[in-house]
Computed example of a mutant assay.
Amino acid sequence: MPPRSHFLEVLLVFTRLGLTSFGGPVAHLGYFREEFVHRRRWLDEHNYADLVALCQFLPGPASSQVGMALGISRAGLWGALAAWLGFTLPSAIVLVVFALGVTAVGDLGNAGWLQGLKIVAVAVVARAVLGMAKTLTPDRARAALALGAAITVLLLPTTFIQVLVILAAGLIGWRFLPGAGLVGGAELPLALSRRLGGAFLGLFGLLLVGLPLLRQTVGGPFLSVFDSFYRAGSLVFGGGHVVLPLLEAEVVPPGWVTRDAFLAGYGATQAVPGPLFTFSAYLGAVSQVGLNRFVAAAVASVAIFLPSFLLVAGALPFWNALRTRPTVQSALRGVNAGVVGILLAALYTPVFTAAVATPLDFALVLGAFALLEYAKLPPWLVVALSALMGGLLL
């Protein structure tokens, strides 16, 4: 059948996943593997591993990018749209509703439940750092690379430095970390031409450079929101948690969102399924930027995910030729170690420094971490318990 005829199939499957995929990006990849490799057999293990490797290397939310790539493999560009809508809309709608409630409450500075959400965010990010470190920095060389990346980002906390750290980590991996375990298998089932892929990559770069210029010359709240969230989605390596400092720098200093409201939304995002980048819908809805709240939520959501679509659709036509090269595998090893370092820096600031001020705060962090890591409770339940404990004790 023509690829477009599978649009509803992709939409329905990803909507179900968007309603049930709790646990963060690593868990999402597990859900995808079970659904599309084992149950539906849309692609084989080798092809799925290749898609995951590509999306980890590209900036943006890895699980959402893998979903878009799976949609493309099944139904072309229409499939990418269907996968994004299904996987993103459920949590985005919930977070917009939560944002309206936060706005109605007003001053959140002394809310105990808010402190509970800040505390559980520390535990969630700490668990992410630990899990990624075990997988991506198993030897001294990569552990040292991760620590160097963390130190650099902490001492020079700018978006530009984060990008340089990722590039440097990739170069170090290419030069000093020989690739191993190269993946074979058939070519990925794609129907995109290299010319179209090149056009998408060109549009990605054009928007990244052109939007800030338009914002300065034309101005207006629409362009301001679109530029800020597009840039955040373009410069994030390593998944959702790394986007925190970028988004905070875009929305808190200008006064669009208060720091307390920012952290409350991040905590609430842990309680919903789907990608962490749906945090953008909350930030748009809660922001004081001069747009209707629903319009701002939609603009922020589209803008932060648009780079992922352009990069995935642009890179896939070239990936079959690149995926088995040892130099690409080596660069991936370095980039992944650098990601661990950036996550470690984000764990300290803004997450830990904003949440932990007393021994009781730290005790609650440890309790939340234990519930996640050892009791294996679902994240949404730990978030709810932390909010409840914060309301009772803080």
Results as ranks from 00 to 15, higher is better:
residue 306 L to H: 11
residue 53 A to N: 12
residue 379 P to K: 01
residue 244 L to W: 01
residue 348 Y to N: 11
residue 245 P to C: 02
residue 206 L to C: 07
residue 107 D to T: 00
residue 85 L to I: 15
residue 232 A to R: 03
residue 195 R to N: 05
residue 122 V to T: 01
residue 383 V to D: 14
residue 247 L to E: 13
residue 129 V to I: 14
residue 210 G to A: 11
residue 29 L to G: 10
residue 346 A to L: 11
residue 183 V to E: 10
residue 327 T to C: 05
residue 126 A to H: 09
residue 248 E to R: 03
residue 179 G to V: 02
residue 122 V to K: 12
residue 63 S to E: 05
residue 118 K to Y: 07
residue 325 R to I: 10
residue 335 V to C: 13
residue 84 W to V: 13
residue 258 T to I: 00
residue 180 A to T: 11
residue 82 A to C: 12
residue 295 V to H: 15
residue 364 L to K: 04
residue 76 G to C: 00
residue 299 V to S: 08
residue 154 L to G: 00
residue 242 V to P: 10
residue 259 R to T: 12
residue 77 L to C: 09
residue 155 L to H: 02
residue 317 P to F: 14
residue 249 A to E: 09
residue 48 Y to A: 03
residue 194 R to C: 01
residue 285 A to D: 01
residue 65 Q to L: 06
residue 138 P to F: 02
residue 248 E to A: 04
residue 89 L to D: 05
residue 366 L to T: 05
residue 93 I to T: 10
residue 57 F to H: 02
residue 189 P to N: 12
residue 8 L to I: 13
residue 377 L to G: 07
residue 14 F to S: 09
residue 279 F to T: 07
residue 26 V to P: 04
residue 117 L to Y: 00
residue 115 Q to L: 06
residue 263 L to G: 00
residue 138 P to K: 06
residue 368 A to S: 08
residue 334 G to W: 14
residue 14 F to Q: 11
residue 79 G to H: 11
residue 364 L to N: 07
residue 214 L to M: 13
residue 27 A to G: 12
residue 277 F to G: 04
residue 310 L to K: 10
residue 141 A to M: 10
residue 375 A to T: 15
residue 309 F to V: 09
residue 382 V to R: 10
residue 228 S to W: 04
residue 209 V to S: 10
residue 83 A to Y: 12
residue 365 V to K: 05
residue 300 A to W: 01
residue 344 L to R: 10
residue 150 A to F: 11
residue 205 G to C: 14
residue 5 S to P: 02
residue 313 A to E: 09
residue 96 V to E: 00
residue 43 L to F: 07
residue 120 V to Y: 02
residue 326 P to F: 11
residue 271 A to V: 01
residue 94 V to Y: 04
residue 100 L to T: 00
residue 374 Y to P: 15
residue 386 S to P: 04
residue 357 A to W: 06
